[in-house]
Amino acid sequence: MKIKTNIYSALGEVSSVYDRRSIWTRSLISLRKAPYTARFGMVIIFGYMLVAIFAPILAPYGEAQVFPKPYAPWSSDYIFGTDQIGRDIFSRMIYGARNTVGIAVATTILAFLIGGVLGLAAAINRSWLDQVLSRSVDVLMAIPSLIFALVLLSIFGSTVSNLIIIIAVLDSTRVYRLTRAVSLNVVVMDYVEAARLRGEGLGWIMRREILPNIMPPLIAEFGLRFCFVFLTIAALSFLGIGIQPPTADWGSMVRENASLIMFAQYDLKAGLTPLLPAAAIALLTVAINFVVDWFLHKTSGLRDDQ
């Protein structure tokens, strides 16, 4: 079969031109196509956000309000019972969402600010700055971060601000590595060279030429980093050297009520109590992992019109 050959024109090179969709319609379309795991994840994350924001309204009692009945069983007054000194566990769970998640979010944002800016700068500069930063990161990463955090906390003491700064600095090394690696792929592009030839400043090149192109992996990394930070802080609190009482926190709540688990054979509900805050942690990280997994899959080449 032969086709009619038409006369060449630059305008006619692309055969199908479609209307550009706005960002919102595009994300709505991809949301509708999202697998059920990702949708489940998004609903959970949204739920946690609501609980964290409206904690004082939702909680029946105060965060550190003590009742004269330690280890009270589950009842209509104390939905999940009370803890070893008589605080309402359900209320503390709700406040815990605010404290534990809030601190983890703050830490992750700080880690991204430090790691992201330094990583970008190293990728563009490529000379002594890159050398110095990359070598120091190598050394920092040679020590397991939980161990390093333990050492630093033993020196500076366990306050919330110390916790945030220490974990953020340790975690920023990984953000630095990723940002530097993905930026290096973009920095070698001719359009960055073209911008440099034009005489654009460093700030413009970072913001307008590079940043939009490295956003997808960074967003995915933000989710994963958050999980990691969240789990690290939970582990430290569980070990008793993270968030300190009386602040309600899921990690330390597990520790405080751990002994209840051996009563499971007499009262299953009591045995479940220490698992509740642990499950709250697990549920959020699972949800985030589901969303990130889908996001990575989507941005690794599969566009919405394919």
Partner: peptide
């Protein structure tokens, strides 16, 4: 800088996809 301009081999990498 303005008076000397450059056009690259790979147009794909010479313009910012975003």
């Amino acid at each position: 800088k303005r008076r000397i301009q450059m056009i690259y081999q790979m147009a794909d990498t010479a313009i910012n996809p975003r």
